[in-house]
Design a binder for these strands. Structure first.
Lengths: 334, 334
DNA sequence: TTGTACGCGTTATCAG
DNA sequence: CTGATAACGCGTACAA
């Protein structure tokens, strides 16, 4: 641990025989600098091992080159659902590519979210990507930094990226219908999240388009968690032993349902076909009996960061949104 | 989004009718300030909504009030193992309590670790907590910031916190022995991590103390992952159908083994008793057939941050280590 | 006990 | 194209 102080831009400039201004221009890639000077500075940088002081830079420019990824769920859950792992990875990569730093924070409740608000200021971050905000929760509005939501927020007036939940759910259910299934149950997501509502909506529309009635007792509420999938599947098969398919609003619940069906000795997909939504858990567990939507998390994360970057530049408050189309991904023999 | 500039300390001072120096002293809790002035400043702070500028503060004090938690595993794995979730939560809480910020980074390989090294400087962080470093990997030594490892690193000359892996494993195995098990297999952890080696060592010692031979074909290598637990369990029961217990070096593998045993119709714990180590996965999945060590992640995380805080203050390079004793946690009817 | 002045390392402005 | 120079907001000796 040699306590050697890091070299300053001043020292680099002296070492290269130029003024500090020129050195700065080189570091920041300004065009107006002679090749000769540029090279001298670059060599000095290499030789001295110079690295810009972030604090000084932030103080001057009022930019932090940092974006926050806020996940409004408790840690336990974040770690339990593959969706979040994929999203973290995607956003992380995208942020890195825009040569910014990422800070990740998971906030279980309103209280913690408010405390985090202290940190979501221009002083600490240039922008934030927020995910999984239930209707009630929302980021402090006077936060003063651009926010991009992953998943359409309740009031559509905000920057957000999302997949086409309605269309995706509809496709999945239509696929089940095309396979001859007629009594299709639905395990919904939380109804205080647009993704939960929209997927239920897609289910409903598929039935309607096929001229089938919407039967309330074929619908069971879930909350995207594994246990809720287990419970819902159990309730459904007991209430409606005649069902021949289940559409779960996400893969985690679908996997829970799969286990529960197995426990009850119900043949999947022989007797009951199973469908999830996001494709994440199914892929991880390599379960070939699931029909899902291929949710391109990488693209979703990239889109979020892209929109955010634009907002950071522009600061025009015209909300912008990107909705990715959902592509069906058919499991084996469903 | 009212683009209102944040108030400066100067403004606070003026608003309170005092000098900037006094205002600063109040903010930093200096003792030498009159109650009268203190209150005036405090009110000004409240009224103006002042919050200290971190960049300026860092520039001046050369302290960032930030610590990094570096997990040397790929994201997918971090999210898959409950151990990490618990650790993140614990460290996160502890760091918060020391009123610092936490940045979390997961690095899959050597390359990324080296790139991260650019960030692990006094300029960005005051210290780092590192976890799951395989023997080969290590943080850049010229990093110049104090590091505390979670889990004893290969060369013991470093700050670290750990649980008593040898003793814990030994206790678990001895418990199996006390229950009358005699042919106890072991699924090891990675042998390039001290936790993996030590737990195998504990297994060996328990056998030795009981006068039982160490049989090589009762040992199967794992890497702490679920699939490796599945594979190892399968290999073991095929090679040694006579085994009556399996000790897995962590819970994730134990759960994998449990599933595999179930798949093969082997009665657990009737015919084969099962034991894990860290208690995390067992608790999460509420599997009562596992005997494990109760690894107090909260305490481990707290200890890590505590040691780190001390190192940040002191900077004396006398390495410090904390080893928590392992407490047996007996599963139901094993 | 309090206020003043300086410097932390950068970037941006402005003459040259 | 280049080199001084003024902020950026704060902590802290130092003087009062």
């Amino acid at each position: 641990m040699t306590r050697r102080r890091q070299p300053t831009l001043e020292e680099v400039a002296r070492h290269a025989g130029v003024g500090r201004g020129t050195a700065s221009r080189v570091v920041n890639g300004s065009a107006h600098v002679s090749p000769r000077a540029r090279e001298a500075v670059e060599r000095a940088i290499r030789e001295l091992g110079y690295v810009p002081n972030q604090a000084a830079r932030t103080l001057k420019t009022r930019r932090t080159d940092t974006v926050a990824l806020v996940i409004a769920e408790e840690e336990e859950r974040v770690f339990a659902e593959p969706f979040f792992a994929g999203l973290v990875r995607a956003v992380s990569r995208a942020v890195e590519e825009s040569s910014r730093r990422l800070v990740l924070s998971m906030v279980p409740g309103e209280e913690q979210l408010r405390r985090l608000g202290q940190f979501l200021t221009p002083q600490h971050v240039d922008g934030v990507v927020a995910v999984s905000l239930h209707d009630g929760l929302s980021l402090p509005d006077h936060a003063d930094v651009p926010v991009v939501y992953v998943g359409r927020p309740a009031d559509g007036r905000a920057n957000y990226v999302d997949v086409d939940n309605v269309g995706g759910a509809r496709q999945v259910v239509e696929h089940l219908l095309a396979r001859g299934r007629r009594t299709i149950a639905c395990i919904t997501g939380p109804q205080d999240m647009s993704s939960g509502r929209d997927r239920l909506d897609g289910y409903r529309r598929a039935l309607h388009a096929a001229g089938l009635p919407f039967e309330a007792d074929l619908v069971e509420a879930g909350d995207f968690s594994d246990p809720s999938g287990v419970a819902a599947a159990g309730a459904l098969v007991e209430r409606r032993p005649d069902l021949d398919a289940i559409f779960a609003a996400n893969d985690v619940m679908a996997l829970g349902a799969l286990r529960e069906l197995g426990r009850r000795g119900i043949d999947v997909p022989g007797r009951v076909a199973l469908a999830g939504f996001d494709g994440s858990a199914a892929a991880a567990a390599s379960v070939p009996v699931l029909t899902t939507v291929d949710q391109p998390l990488a693209r979703l994360g990239a889109a979020a960061v892209e929109v955010l970057a634009r907002r950071i530049e522009d600061a025009s408050s015209e909300p912008e949104s990107v909705v990715l189309t959902a592509e069906l991904k058919v499991g084996e023999s469903t």
